[in-house]
């Protein structure tokens, strides 16, 4: 990849990687740092990486950096813990997308990432598997579980509203 390709990658993918990490991590500053770090790593390997794979390389690098951070902070939570939390206090949402993003925050990380990659970026199961290191079957089941959790959350919120 050339410097020109690298800068093109910045133009085309920095926003998407940032959007993904920000939504997943729910922390602007850290999302900035992770994007910065991912592009620094890309720059170090710029000669080895071909442009066609750079998008999934960036998402994969950013994803694993984020997972490292989450593991360090022991923020991995179980579905049971998260879905029970604060249901009744969230009735201020007016927009379905807002409700979904609020629900997303309560999803365990392994479901949240795959749903985000699927919905934000339209990645296939295989591509999501390449990024996250999961098998296609695991991706599929995680998306299914994530969707069901979101659906249940919407149902509860609608009941409250």
């Amino acid at each position: 990849m050339t410097v020109k390709d690298y800068n093109r990658a910045v133009d085309e993918y920095a926003d998407a990687v940032y959007r993904f990490i920000r939504a997943d991590l729910r922390d602007d500053d850290r999302a900035h740092d992770i994007v910065q770090d991912s592009f620094e790593k890309l720059w170090k390997h710029v000669a080895e990486i071909e442009y066609p794979v750079v998008k999934s390389w960036l998402f994969s690098t950013a994803y694993h950096t984020m997972i490292d951070i989450i593991r360090k902070e022991k923020r991995m939570t179980s579905l049971e813990e998260t879905m029970e939390a604060d249901l009744l206090t969230d009735s201020q949402y007016t927009d379905l997308n807002e409700i979904l993003h609020a629900a997303l925050e309560r999803l365990p990380e392994q479901y949240r990432s795959v749903v985000l990659l699927r919905d934000y970026e339209g990645y296939s199961y295989k591509e999501i598997g390449d990024i996250t290191g999961l098998s296609e079957a695991q991706v599929k089941i995680n998306i299914y579980r994530g969707r069901m959790a979101l659906k249940n959350y919407i149902g509860k919120i609608e009941t409250v509203i």
Binding site: A14, A23, L96, H101, L116
Partner: peptide, 19 residues
């Protein structure tokens, strides 16, 4: 209804990443 719509956020420091 569980399909998420991506928010329109952009990465502010894009220019600092460029070489």
């Amino acid at each position: 209804k569980t399909r998420l719509a991506a928010p329109s956020v952009t990465y502010k420091n894009k220019s600092s990443l460029k070489k």
